[in-house]
Amino acid sequence: MADPGFPPDTLGLVPMPSRRAVLSRRVFSHVGLLIGAGLIAVIVIMAIFAPVLAPYDPYAQDLSNRRIPPVWHAWINDHHKASWAHPFGTDRIGRDYLSRIIYGARISLLIGTLAMLISGTLGTALGVAAGYFGGRIDMFVNFLVTTRLSLPLILVCLVIVTLFGGSITTIILALGFLIWDRFAIVMRSVTLQIRNLDYVTVARANGCSSAYIIFREILPNVANALIVVATIEMAVAILLEAVLSFLGLGVKPPLPSWGLMIAEAKTDMFFDAWLIGIPGIALFVLILAINLVGDGLRDVTAPERRA
């Protein structure tokens, strides 16, 4: 085409960077995602290595050392009891607060993750089925979603806990079977969009089974939306657990749930504010981190973004 004297120059034909390179560049230039992921990593490590990291047994009571304020009281108002022996102080029956916070991360993460997985599986299955098959199945799923949305969460939990008692298993199952609605709604609409795309039509024309189309053609393309909803729902589950525990409907003492710790401390709120402040901040940081990761993942995996 070009004569030999003319070198085949690149002429702005920039080589397309590989997918992985693009993704990693986007991840490492997204500050929010990095901060969120870092915070979550810290909390997860804390939860996994709790027995090693916690300085005391979280259940061990020490009635001679009750309500010791956290270490910073030693610096601020020169409190004689505050020391590095109990960096976050002790509660009103003398349990080490730092150890309880560390163990509490286990409960929050366990409940958040499992409730999210249960509700995610349920909601995705319902949503994808409704979007893909349509017709009566769609009507049935819509009916389920409406029914679920008309149930007041707290009241339903109250009933469940009165009937079955407030164990971690009960809470996980109750939350898992209650917060799937957002998954179902989002997955249904995304599936509806993809279902009408030509590549699904081609698969159908080739006689692919519904299972193949759902698992190989549709699900990989709803993953973005799924991840974002999953992070939101995980945060919701963790917060709901804290709320339920605070109301006495969640996990039972002496388990070190952050919500329960806040509840136990509410009588001392005006005298020893840190008893509420520390678990509150822990909860805040975890929820913030999860939401940062969710937003970040949405930005990073979006197909088109400003170059």
């Binding site: 085409m1 070009a2 004569d3 003319f6 120059d9 002429l11």
Partner: peptide, 17 residues
């Protein structure tokens, strides 16, 4: 950036030095 020269030269049947 700057493409330098004729923009069509990589597809042109008559491109030369």
């Amino acid at each position: 950036g700057d493409l330098g020269g004729c923009h069509f030269r990589n597809r042109c049947a008559y491109a030369h030095a």
